[in-house]
């Protein structure tokens, strides 16, 4: 199986409360924040690795995982980290973050999919900086591929996947045939979420994503990392949306600590009138 994993680097999501907005509101200041791979894309990579190995220890690779990012030169650090984790090959599409929108990323990915011909595009359901949740769906439509968004489980079958999607009110199971687009949700990295046809049914992964071992980090320096021009993938680089400015959310002021349950109930009833 060949899997393409689009991966975005974002400002450290656990410090998103440290983003600053200058008085002009012209930009979002992320200086001082560390770059991290979008967590959902890390999960997609982990799921891709699980689908392309035999699920025994030591795990034997049985497929190809290609990671791709759209960004400036320094995003190659993110790609190298993905290679160290186990991806086989990386592509960087040279682009400035502020010259991209979801539609353009999807259009360019479409051209890349037509070149690379993966069985599966496996990606995060959303990038946690923009919180848009759109690229996977737009890409699937542009390719006329079936899609399964918000995947919490995946089980490989002949020619496709059974995907459990987390939706309002429960879990929907879909059967998709390759080639397809799947976007992943948080629980795709639970120990029993992903089974390839080679994985023993009783096999359990460690919870969460795997980390790169030191020898793998060294070896990753030799894995192929290609650079592609955005213009080679998208003739039309026009943006469909424009950001005019940014605002900080109103601060919520901390309240008080109550003494005990009696105090709490009194205040809810008489002060907040919330009961």
């Amino acid at each position: 199986m060949k899997i393409l994993v689009p991966l975005k680097r974002v400002a450290d999501p656990d410090n998103a409360n440290k983003v600053k907005i200058p008085a002009s509101g012209a930009t979002i200041e992320t200086t001082g924040l560390e770059w991290k791979p979008n967590p959902f894309d890390e999960y997609a990579l982990e799921a891709a690795l699980r689908l392309t190995e035999d699920g025994k220890a030591p795990k034997v690779r049985a497929g190809e995982v290609v990671v791709v990012t759209f960004g400036p030169k320094e995003t190659e650090t993110t790609l190298r980290a993905a290679l160290a984790t186990g991806a086989d090959r990386a592509i960087r599409v040279d682009a400035a973050d502020d010259k991209l929108d979801g539609h353009l990323v999807a259009r360019a990915l479409k051209a890349l999919v037509e070149r690379e011909k993966p069985d599966l595009v496996l990606m995060g359901k959303q990038a946690v900086d923009g919180d848009s949740n759109q690229v996977g769906q737009i890409l699937a439509e542009q390719l006329d591929y079936p899609m399964a968004t918000f995947a919490a489980t995946m089980k490989e079958e002949a020619g496709g996947l059974l995907v459990g999607r987390e939706v309002d009110g429960g879990v929907i199971t879909l059967r998709v045939k390759f080639p397809a687009v799947v976007t992943v949700d948080l629980r795709i990295v639970a120990p029993t979420s992903v089974y390839s046809m080679k994985t023993a049914p009783a096999f359990k992964y460690n919870d969460g994503v795997r980390f790169a071992a030191l020898p793998a980090i060294m070896a990753a320096k030799k894995k192929p990392l290609a650079e592609v021009k955005l213009a080679d993938l998208a003739a039309d680089q026009g943006l469909r949306v424009t950001y005019h400015g940014f605002q900080a959310p109103p601060a919520r002021k901390a309240g008080i600590k109550v003494k005990d349950v009696t105090d709490l109930v009194n205040r809810l009833k008489n002060e907040a009138k919330a009961l």
């Binding site: 998103a16 979002i28 900086d129 919180d131 469909r240």
Partner: peptide, 20 residues
């Protein structure tokens, strides 16, 4: 029409418009 949307886990609002 302009749209205000939460980003960065609600730690910023973006004001944006759509040109299509």
């Amino acid at each position: 029409l302009k749209y205000k949307r939460p980003m960065f886990a609600g730690n910023a609002f973006g004001i944006m418009s759509v040109s299509t």
